[in-house]
Amino acid sequence: MPSSDDIASLNDVHFGYVASRPVLDGISMRIPRGKVVAIMGGSGCGKTTILRLLAGQMRPDKGNVVFDRQSVPRLSKPELYAMRRRLGFLFQFGALFTDMSVYENVAFPFREHTDLSEELIHDLVLMKLNAVGLRGAAYSRTNELSGGMARRVALARAIALDPLLMLYDEPFTGLDPISLSVVGQLIRRLNDALGISSVLVTHDIYQSLKIVDYVYFVGEGRILAEGTPEAIRSSTDPFVKQFVNGEEDGPVPLHMKALPLATDFLGRAIEERAQ
């Protein structure tokens, strides 16, 4: 049940892009203050949808989403925008503004939401870039950055206004092992240093178990398993075991649901013979 210790929570959330096919089918989860929570699951299981619901980008069909004691689906547009200033969002590939330099990207939230002087913005931007280790890249163009660097710049931009909660959408996708652990450690360090909370949507089980406090496994629109990293590692749940060990077949089947083989391959032959 939600307590005041939670920065955000989902209570029995139902959601579907089309009514006939629910993506989320009764999901409840809590994001405690100061913790890093991972949401894991196979591709297309609705992980990203959960982030979008948390950020108020979409409204659940049923159930409630709470952020900082406010019910997100009930917020008006100005209230929602006010809420998002306390929220940091890191996109899968960073989503840096390609028409601006690295410096201008990080300065963007200050320019849009504050009246700070140019000198102050300059100092703040370099501070934020320093926090992700990229002060030296301040005057580079965004297309000169590697994937990992772009994501770190985006991270600097996301933490610019000191959010209460950071949402990470697949932060590890497409990174080499070094960049991957750099980004992973950065997420953890920033979380503890800034005293914020983080939600991490990922399917990189190995990296995330090293840095998170709690894990939710999502599949078929519901929570299949949850627990601390230790509990997950020693879990005997067949789904968790399949995911952790990366087994090909298991509760998550290799084959998509389809007609029986005989019907698909021989169907026409059978029909033709019947005629």
């Binding site: 950020a55 980008q57 925008y81 006010a82 998002r84 200033r85 929220l87 969002f89 996109f91 899968q92 590939f93 989503a95 840096l96 503004f97 390609t98 963007f108 939230p109 849009e112 939401h113 985006a154 931009r157």
Partner: peptide
């Protein structure tokens, strides 16, 4: 490239 969405997420 999600830049518009990123902007929206930054309350712009």
């Amino acid at each position: 490239t999600d830049q518009l969405l990123a902007m929206e997420m930054m309350a712009v």
